[in-house]
Every structure is written in C-alpha cells, then in structure tokens.
Amino acid sequence: MPSTDKYSILLPTYNEVENLPIIIWLLIKHMNASGYPYEIIIIDDGSPDGTLEAAKQLQKIYGEDKIVLRPREKKLGLGTAYIHGIKHATGNYIIIMDADLSHHPKFIQEFIEKQRSQNFDIVTGTRYIGGGGVHGWDFKRKLISRGANLLTQILLRPGVSDLTGSFRLYKKDILETLIKSCVSKGYVFQMEMIVRARQRRYTIGEVPISFVDRVYGESKLGGSEIIQFARSLLYLFATT
C-alpha cells in the first residue's frame, strides 16, 4: 500500500546507558521488519552516566537518518521533552515509549495497524486487558495498581483501560495540542493527556502490551507517588 506515513519514535532518556543500546537494537530490528518508514529521536537530559556518548556510537552504527540526537542541558519535564522532540520530528505520527526496556518495540507494528484500522487519533498500550500484563510486580504493587485503576475508572469514566501507561502512538498535531493543554508533571502527565484527549473527543484505540518492569535500575512507587496520583485524580475529577 503506497503511503507517505512516517513514524517518529521519541525516546527521552536520563541515565539509561545500559538500556539504550538494547532498546535501539530492538527498535531497529522490529521497525525494519515491519517495513514502515521511521526515525528514532533520542532526547537525553544531560545524563551523567554517558548515555549521550552511547547514543553517538549507535548513531554511527545505524546512520543519522535513523538515529537523531536532540540532547538538552539538564533534566526538564517530560512534556517539554516531547515538545523538544516533536520540533525536530519529520514523521506525521509520533510514538512515545520508555527507554528502560519495559516497553517492547515488537508492539509498535500492532499500534500502527490498530491506528490504520479505524484512523484513530491515538493508540495506547494497555496492561489491563486482553493479553496485556506486567512482569516483576509483587502482590502489594498489583493491589495498588488495580485499586487505583478501578477508582479512576469509577470517578472519571475515561473509556480507556490504562491511563498511566506511557507507550502510545499519536497523530503529531494532536500530541502537540494535548501537551499544551496539560499542566501535570511526572507520570500523572500521561493520565492527564489521555483524559483530556477523551474530553476533546479524540478517538483512542487500545493494544494489550506486556510490561516488563525495569531490568536495570530501580522502579519506584512510594508514598509520594501515591499522593501525587490522588491529587491529580481529584484535579481531573473537578476540572474535566
């Protein structure tokens, strides 16, 4: 099928020197196999561990058309990282994902096919339905996650099963519009994005994904994350 679609994969990084080569290798492998035109934009926020140097090596191996480097001086918000990446993106679709190997690039082809099936504005990965799931969570973590998810479903009725996931495909202009309308920081940013998308009546498709919690490095869920989540849930409850 002739098409001018191109997919820009945004990869914000901070201290991912171990994960970055692996995720890039996986992305190249699966995107080449899928046959869709793509580019990978690495936005490193001044990692002290040498992530940028690793990225430069990868750029030499895979080429400047595939690997684009857009580093920033220091750690700034996720939303601004996306804005920064979009500015240099040549694709008409944007894929956002984490660089810590919890999101597997093999699902991107499914995202693209889902998007094309009904011309969705957004396709989001979901851990909560179908064949989706999470590896590496204990009972307590699962309980908090499921409890928070049900509470959110009851209060906001967002029509999307996974609100805090950050593995998504957006039409480029829609992502730009959404980021500008969001005020949250941190991981609740993803929840606000999808709730505001629903409020604006954008169409959203879902693809079940397996989420493998951080292989290298620490995954965190503490009291402050829970408080942050509760606050933004109430904020969205009162404003959307």
């Binding site: 080569p21 290798w25 799931g133 999470v134 397996s210």
Partner: peptide, 23 residues
Amino acid sequence: RVFTFNNCDEAAEELQKEILQAK
C-alpha cells in the same frame, strides 16, 4: 483482577534472550 493479573513470564524470558543477542 490482582489474582488474574497476567505475569508475562514468557515476555520477560524472551527479553533476557534478546538482551544477550543485542549485546
């Protein structure tokens, strides 16, 4: 939902193999 939460053990094993291949 907690007890039926998919553990994705296969996905984790597959990823470990792919990490070795990638390296």
